[in-house]
């Protein structure tokens, strides 16, 4: 049941139209950050107000929504956002990636490949990939306009000179369609290869910073690198201790104060699906049946 005191999906229709216009312009200019008049939402800035507004502008009554934070459906903020849309839009929700038509995420791309017909909505804290090199919006806007990304390459190269590799492990910048440098939101760089050539629509919402941007399906997305230092996605050098997966992104869990730890899939739905299919990891409980 949706909450009758509010409009379908909470936002008023004029606000949704404004956001929808911004989304379409974002799709037309992949990777370019479209300013939008972000509204004050009934949750704090930093909790996903941008993603929530984009999701609210996209949801139809027929949608099935999945919300993840850090790859998990049951993290408190994911629970809170899912409940918000259950209340205000009355949409069906799911934890299964394959069942979802709209997925709102913070910091991960699901392990299971997305398909056409799905929309992945990212919560973005700082949409400007150049922000930490140049704090002024007036300057970074010019740099994008002039396609002046030298500063970013200098920064990455200095990393290599100092550390032998690029010391950015998440929110790793990408170049979209050979034009705009884009912040993929703080996903681990492990997830970067999934940004490009994806059959689903990817939308990015930054509420506090008032920006929306987008990647249409099958977009050309390249993680910035150098010929002699190619981009490498990385993950913990372990298998999942619950499902045994060797290729998924892992959370490290501290199990005691003696240095004991285990590694488990960050994507909880992916891990459960594998376990249900009989896959087992190093620390899987013994079968009792």
């Amino acid at each position: 049941m949706s909450d009758q005191a509010y409009n379908f999906a909470y936002l008023d229709e004029a606000t949704k139209r404004m956001i929808r216009r911004a989304i379409l312009k974002g799709l037309a200019v992949p990777g370019y950050q479209v300013p939008f008049a972000s509204r004050e939402m009934p949750m704090p800035y930093g909790w996903g107000t941008g993603g929530v507004q984009v999701t609210a502008a996209c949801l139809t009554p027929e949608d099935t929504l999945k919300v993840i934070d850090q790859g998990a459906d049951d993290t408190t903020n994911a629970v809170s956002i899912r409940t918000f849309f259950e209340r205000t839009a009355g949409v069906a929700t799911t934890t299964q990636t394959a069942q979802a038509s709209v997925i709102q995420t913070r910091h991960r791309i699901p392990e299971e490949p997305l398909r056409a017909g799905q929309i992945l909505v990212y919560q973005v804290p700082i949409p400007e990939p150049l922000r930490f090199l140049e704090p002024r919006e007036s300057e970074t806007r010019k740099m994008h306009a002039l396609e002046e990304y030298g500063l970013m390459h200098v920064k990455l190269y200095e990393d290599i000179a100092r550390h032998g590799e690029i010391s950015t492990a998440y929110a790793y910048p990408v170049r979209v369609e050979g034009r705009y440098v884009m912040d993929p939101s703080p996903i681990p760089k492990f997830d970067n290869p999934k940004l490009g050539n994806c059959p689903a629509i990817q939308l990015f919402g930054a509420g506090r910073e008032q920006r929306i941007y987008a990647l249409p399906p099958y977009c050309d997305v390249v993680s910035l690198d150098f010929e002699d230092h190619p981009f490498t996605p990385s993950k913990a050098d372990h298998d999942c201790d619950l499902c045994g997966c060797a290729t998924s992104y892992l959370d490290e869990v501290i199990t005691d104060d003696q240095g004991g730890r285990m590694f488990v899939c960050s994507d909880t739905d992916f891990c459960e699906t594998r376990r249900d299919a009989g896959h087992r990891g190093r620390l899987s409980p013994e079968e009792t049946a």
Partner: peptide, 19 residues
């Protein structure tokens, strides 16, 4: 909002930094 959001889970980002 932005200041306090750093108390939300950042396991994934932190894991990538750990590595």
């Amino acid at each position: 909002g932005f200041l306090e959001h750093i108390k939300l889970p950042h396991y994934v980002d932190f894991q990538s930094e750990l590595e």
